Simulated scan of single mutants.
Amino acid sequence: MGGRVTEWTTIREEHKIFEDEAVLALDKPVGVAVMGERHDTDLVSMAREAGEELFPAHRIDKVTSGVVLFAKQLRHHGDLTRQFNRRTVDKTYLALTRTHGIPASATIDLPLSVGRKNRVRIAANRADIVTVTADAGPADTAGADTAGASTAAAAPGPESAPWLWTVPAAKTFPHVRTYPSVTHLARLWEGTEHTLVAAHPVSGRRHQIRVHLAWVGHPIEGDPLFERAPTTRTFLHAWRLAFDAGWDGGRRMVVEAVPGPDFWRSLDGEDAAVAAASLTGFNAPATF
């Protein structure tokens, strides 16, 4: 017990990015769950053992780093969770892929379902995914590999035009429960081997960004859902979170977790510096 209390104290001191009388925002390290972990190794359990009761307004995956928002009192928790449920919270993630071909701006509008072994997948065959631009009609599919992580989609039109990855309604699986899911993307940087994108999950489903990117041919590097025995961390980071502070007159608040050095570890020094610099001054496009 003493070790977990010490671990919580360290995490709270070193990873706190914002705190007031109502909420605590932490930059969650990779490998730590928000709640529900066996053996009480999650943040909520560690805090409780240290004498602090916290109420998470949302969750991010254990393999993901970045912003997690907690209510410090139960009376604030309901309002925060309602904001997430009503999709009035703006969430921006950073994802690093070892691929090329992601357009400057894109939307992935692909329904999710749960397949064998409780794995989240697209509720359609990968061969039925089509790419569309504002300047052109339907073009090439995202490929025929239903594993969803092997090839990038072919370019459907002018590079500057926004892309849409989608699937015709008639091709969506009729025999399973499906969950409409939308992710907006903005390419921030592209190097010789990697691409850095900002991702805004409108619907916020489980594993949404990870599955969406993989099924259009751009899996996140180090993602164990789509990479066997990865040797690196999963390069997905919850970067920014914007919400309304009902306890402070409804003021819109933005909290940001700057990616740590481990997020840039798969890039060489020059690429890491340029990729990190691309975050400066980023303003989400209108589609966000």
Rank of each mutant, 00 (worst) to 15 (best):
K171S: 14
H100G: 14
F173D: 15
A214K: 01
A155L: 08
T97R: 02
E21M: 11
T97M: 08
I17Q: 04
H100F: 10
V216K: 01
P168K: 05
A142M: 07
G281T: 09
E193W: 03
L196K: 07
R4A: 12
E190M: 15
G66E: 04
W163Y: 13
S278P: 00
A50N: 08
R59H: 12
L74D: 14
E270P: 04
H39N: 15
W189E: 06
P174M: 15
V23F: 01
P219Q: 09
H175V: 13
L196G: 02
D27T: 05
A238G: 02
W189D: 09
E37V: 07
W163R: 10
S45D: 06
I220L: 04
A229K: 05
A147F: 10
E227D: 03
A198E: 06
H184Y: 03
G101A: 12
L110H: 02
A257T: 06
V197P: 00
R75T: 13
R177L: 11
S181C: 14
L225Q: 06
A134F: 11
P219V: 09
P180G: 11
R116P: 07
P156E: 03
F263I: 14
Q73W: 14
S181T: 05
P162R: 05
S181R: 03
H58W: 10
T232V: 05
V114T: 14
F173K: 09
R228P: 01
P180V: 08
T64G: 02
G204P: 11
